[in-house]
């Protein structure tokens, strides 16, 4: 569905995690952030940026 809209499906991921896996959580966050940073901003974000004042976009994205 995302690919249909030109969004990379890699921007969505599912992880399995138990309550005892605190370190794994930190690991996942770090990994996923690295992946998204490598991908850059989402195409929707770019499109929203174009049509809106920056402050509005930030409010929307937050």
């Amino acid at each position: 569905m995302l690919a249909m809209l030109g969004i990379d499906p890699a921007r969505l991921e599912f992880y399995n995690l138990s309550a005892a896996q605190g370190p794994r959580w930190a690991e996942i966050c770090t990994e996923f952030t690295a992946r998204i940073t490598a991908l850059g901003p989402s195409p929707i974000w770019f499109a929203l940026q174009k049509g809106m004042k920056p402050t509005e976009t930030h409010r929307q994205a937050a």
Binding site: M1, M4, L5, G6, I7, P43, I44, A47, L48, K50, G51
Partner: peptide, 17 residues
């Protein structure tokens, strides 16, 4: 609801209000 969301994203990307 899902289709509406997809269409909204398409509209934004194509710059259609």
């Amino acid at each position: 609801e899902i289709l509406a969301s997809l269409l909204r994203m398409r509209a934004v990307q194509e710059g259609v209000e």
